[in-house]
Every structure is written in structure tokens, then in C-alpha cells.
Design a protein around this nucleic acid. Structure first.
Lengths: 207, 207
DNA sequence: CCTTCAGGTTAACGAGCGCTAACCTCCCTG
DNA sequence: CAGGGAGGTTAGCGCTCGTTAACCTGAAGG
């Protein structure tokens, strides 16, 4: 039933290494020979698995966006049928934040690619990615406006984008695993995201 | 005494257009012919003004980092001798945030380059940029820990980087000037930044 | 009026890179 | 045991792109 068979296949190896290299040196900055070398084969052997370099980037970016959106949908559904039948929108928002942080911490190369190399896609793929991204944003906006009903929609959308910027800052935090521990970092990011939302959601706060 | 004479010279035209193009399509994604065409001359005429394409990027990135650092130093000094002789650290923090937002809103292409193409520099330039960046971060960390003395230094540094991510999200906000007005956006970003800092600065906040 | 020089121009070279062609070699199946 | 396809290999083509070379030109200065 699942589209994948069993073990981490060659394709996935390639995708993983390509993601890392693209994030490190940029899409144009890495050659197919390097990607091949990273998985033990050399150069054009990649073309047995992908139609071209562009196809790798496309599959990565679509995969990222789809994964984020799917995760958010799942979390929304789970919250709707969690315990008593209706967990508050606050819980959903926390769940969204948690999911995004997990992604940002576990797949840092992907999160880097996500907003860096999108323009290198051909039109069809780029539109697909953007549509998935927009759906993801809309889920956040909807939940956010449930938590803070006074928040206007444009402001909510801007706030969501800004919090994405905050959460996606993980690549800049520790160049070489100097993070003070994954759980600590996750908690810090989570509190900051909630604080940022609260600051725009609760209007009329002077100082 | 100033290193520049008077009017926006050709060099500056080139730098401005190069910044825009690099931000749009990436350093490797734009050719020298395009940069030349953007300022009315064609192709290798650029080499009368710059040693090469790398030199343009280097000058841009060093200029950005230096400008941010210089601005922060000035704001810190101004606050120290502002009115009564000692404006609170909160005012300095607000001033830092305001300055960074101005930069992020006025020079979006540069802010994009800032954390996107740094790895394409040769070692000497990259070290210079990183040193300037670190000094800038340290100024923020110092002020932040004055405002929130309970905040440990690693957490403060992470928080600063994360807020940079938040403030630097401006390129994702409105693709084509769909922002709800510059002042409104600036205010929103400012409140979110303060809210994010407050959330980590004031410990022991349950929910 | 001749020189000089800043600031252009076009032609062309050389390197790098994506991709294809042609070939090889297991392993699996009938 | 034939054979065929999956998954490699190396050689090489063609194009792009950064950079250089050689040449041109108009304006300032003695």
C-alpha cells in the first residue's frame, strides 16, 4: 500500500546527500560529480535515478513542502478528535510550532533549501511548491486567528511568515553542534514563537 | 575627509544592481553580462571598476556587515549621552530593533544576500564578514542581558540569532509591495521581536 | 594641436559543468 | 544456461560564463 518498499534505497541516499550539498554550497555551486561521489558512485551514474539535476531539487522542495503540509493537516485532525473531541486552538498552535521546530532541527539542510533555491525550479514545479506552502501558511493563519480573534488577516499572515523566519533560523545557531542540547533549543524556540504571536495578538499593549 | 566625493558614482550603481540581481537569482545564477546590462554598459566593462565578480560580492557583504555594526555602535553611543546621560537598556534594545528593521525594509536585497551567499567568498573576506557579524551580535547580546539579567549568555545568543531570523523575514512578506504599509509592518515586526525576547527573558512563565 | 587616460567596445580563450553515448557486468528469471 | 535489465563506468560533446586582450573614443591639459 505504501509507495516505498522497505529500506533506504539509493534514490533516498542521493536525495539526502544532494540536500546537504545544495544547502552548503548552493544549487549552482555543487556539481553532479560531487553528488555522485557523496554516495559512492561517480558522475553520470545519477542519471539512472533522476532525469537531471533540476529533478533532484524539484523532488526535494516538493517533498519538503508536502511533508510540512501533511504534518500540519495530521496535527489539526488529531487535535479535533484528541480526547474530549475538541482540544483548544492553543493546543493546535503549540502542536504546529512543535512540528515545525522538529523539522527545522532534524532536517536543517532541507529547511535551508526551502527558502533559498525555490527560484531555480521550472515553472510547473515552482507553482506546485508555492501552492503547498500557501496551504501550509493558511492552516497556521486559521489557527492563529482562532487563538487571537482580534487579529486581522493580513497581520496574521505577516506574523506567521515572520515566525517561520524565527524558527528557520536554526542553521545559524550552531555551526558545529554547539547547541546547548536539542530539547533546550526546541523549548527556547517554542517560547519565542509564542511570545512573538502573543505580542501581536494582544493589541493595545503599550510597554 | 570622506572617502566618497559627491554623487552616486558608477561603482555604486553597479553595486546596487548587482545586489538586486544576486538576491533575485543567486550569485552563481547571474552573469556579468546581466549586471553590465542593468547599468547600461555591457559585459566586461565592469572590469574597469571591479577586479572581478567575486570582488563585487565581497564589497557588498562587507559593506552590509560594517553598516549594521556601525549603526549599532552609533545607537549605543547616542543612548549613553542622550538626554539625562543614561537612557535605559530597554531604549537601546528598541533602538537596535528599529535600526535592524529599517535596514531589512529598505535594503531587502542586501539583507537577503547577508545570510545566503556568504560561503561564496574567499577565506579572507569571509573571515572579515564573520568577525563584523559577531561583533554585531555581541552588542545585541550585551544589551539584551542588561534588559533581562536572568538570561544566560548562550540562550541570549540563540535568542538574538532567532530574532534576526524573524526580522530578516521581510523578503518573504510581500512579493510585490503588498505590504500593508511600511510603518504598520515595522511596528508589527518590532512588537514581535520584543515579545519573542520577553518570552525567553522572563523565566518561569508556564502558559 | 598633440597627448593621455578614463571608460567603454567586441572577439575570443579556457575552464567547468550538465548531460549523452557507448560499453560493461552482475544478478535474476524462465 | 541463455538473456535481459538494473545500475554502473569512462569519454566526450556543447554550452555557458568569467576573464583577458586589443582596440576605440571623447574630453581635459599643456
Amino acid at each position: 500500500m505504501a509507495t516505498r518498499t522497505d529500506a533506504p534505497t539509493r534514490r533516498e541516499q542521493i536525495l539526502k546527500e544532494a540536500a546537504r550539498l545544495f544547502a552548503e554550497r548552493g544549487f549552482h555551486g555543487v556539481g553532479v560529480d560531487e553528488i555522485g561521489a557523496a554516495v559512492g558512485i561517480s558522475g553520470p551514474g545519477l542519471y539512472r535515478h533522476f532525469a537531471g539535476k533540476d529533478a533532484m531539487l524539484a523532488e526535494l522542495l516538493v517533498g519538503i513542502s508536502d511533508s510540512l503540509l501533511t504534518g500540519a493537516k495530521r496535527r489539526l485532525a488529531e487535535a479535533g478528535s484528541d480526547r474530549a473531541g475538541a482540544a483548544g486552538p492553543e493546543a493546535v498552535l503549540d502542536s504546529f510550532i512543535e512540528g515545525h521546530i522538529d523539522f527545522a532541527l532534524d532536517d536543517r539542510p532541507l529547511i535551508t533549501l526551502h527558502d533559498r533555491e525555490l527560484d531555480r525550479l521550472r515553472d510547473a514545479d515552482r507553482k506546485m511548491v508555492r501552492q503547498l506552502q500557501r496551504q501550509y501558511v493558511e492552516l497556521w493563519v486559521g489557527v492563529l486567528r482562532e487563538v487571537y480573534p482580534a487579529l486581522a488577516e493580513p497581520a496574521a499572515r505577516s506574523a506567521v511568515h515572520s515566525v517561520f523566519g524565527l524558527l528557520n533560523s536554526t542553521p545559524h545557531l550552531g555551526r558545529a553542534g554547539s547547541l546547548p542540547g536539542r530539547a533546550v533549543t526546541a523549548s527556547l524556540l517554542h517560547r519565542m514563537a509564542r511570545g512573538a504571536f502573543a505580542a501581536v495578538g494582544e493589541e493595545g499593549q503599550g510597554r
